[in-house]
């Protein structure tokens, strides 16, 4: 029992190490690539543009529901003026980075894992190697760089639209004075908070995209089944590992930042 625990702990550490090396190798490979900008544009399209609508939608609804929930809690304390602080801080510090990362994992990460898995099964990754093209640098590198660029941007978009959603329910619907709401948003959120949110977004971005790419890329080694089932297993594992990792590392980063 304890041995099993120890073994799974070692597995996790081993996997994390391999994923880090995988990510570093991909970045190093990307540096040696030709036409880097063109590849980066495609990767930003995949991770940024394609995730924009879902981030916008989820951000809006998160803000709306936060405005509603927190208003009814705060009004019991007679402190509905503090709605702006509550909505703004909870979104910028926690919900923005975490939900954005989970949405991107769902939209782009799972697709990336299965695409790479299929490319592995179809020998496209081997084909790149026989053409003297570094497969990691070609397939994974641009996506990692795109993650570094896109995650903070998507998080900022989520934050702003979420705060606006809180304004819609809090002020327009429930009648908190709009000046009070925005004043509280601006005065409560400091640069320290915003920076913390961006640090989280960066860590989540690098982590989730590395995990998803690693899982898909190594479908032949990691999945317990060959073929189609292996690809679906890779995609599932990629999403599970990414999501759990986001929440676990969120706790760690938060305790460092406070």
């Amino acid at each position: 029992m304890i041995r099993a625990l120890g073994r799974s702990a070692l597995t996790v550490v081993h996997e994390l190490g391999e994923i880090s090396l995988f990510g570093l190798g991909a970045l190093r490979g990307f540096v040696g690539q030709r036409r880097r900008l063109a590849k980066l544009v495609v990767a930003i399209h995949e991770i940024g543009v394609r995730c924009f609508p879902i981030v916008l939608t989820v951000g809006m609804f998160t803000g709306l529901v936060m405005g509603l929930q927190l208003y009814y809690t705060l009004v019991q304390l007679g402190a509905e003026a503090a709605l702006g602080d509550a909505v703004g801080l909870s979104i910028v510090l926690e919900l923005g980075p975490v939900l954005t990362a989970l949405m991107v994992v769902g939209q782009a990460g799972s697709a990336m894992a299965s695409e790479l898995g299929i490319q592995r099964n179809d020998e496209q990754i081997d084909a790149l190697q026989t053409m003297s093209i570094d497969p990691k640098g070609y397939l994974v590198g641009p996506r990692l760089v795109a993650a570094v660029i896109c995650f903070p941007m998507l998080t900022a978009i989520f934050d702003l639209i979420g705060i606006f959603g809180g304004y819609l329910t809090g002020s327009v619907l429930l009648g908190v004075d709009s000046g009070v709401y925005w004043h509280h948003v601006e005065s409560s959120i400091t640069w320290h908070d915003v920076r913390g949110g961006f640090i989280k977004a960066l860590v989540f971005g690098i982590y989730t995209i590395s995990v998803c790419a690693y899982r898909g890329f190594n479908t032949h080694r990691k999945a317990s089944f060959p073929g189609v089932r292996g690809v679906s297993e890779s995609a599932t594992r990629a999403v599970v590992w990414s999501s759990v990792g986001v929440l676990a590392s969120d706790y760690l980063i938060t305790s460092f930042l406070i």
Binding site: D122, E123, Q124, Q129, T130, M131
Partner: peptide
Amino acid sequence: KAGEADGVSFSYMFQNNALF
């Protein structure tokens, strides 16, 4: 380096073509 050896190069045609 894959695909290269002292100026002599290999090509590989895969079973399922492996086209992108």
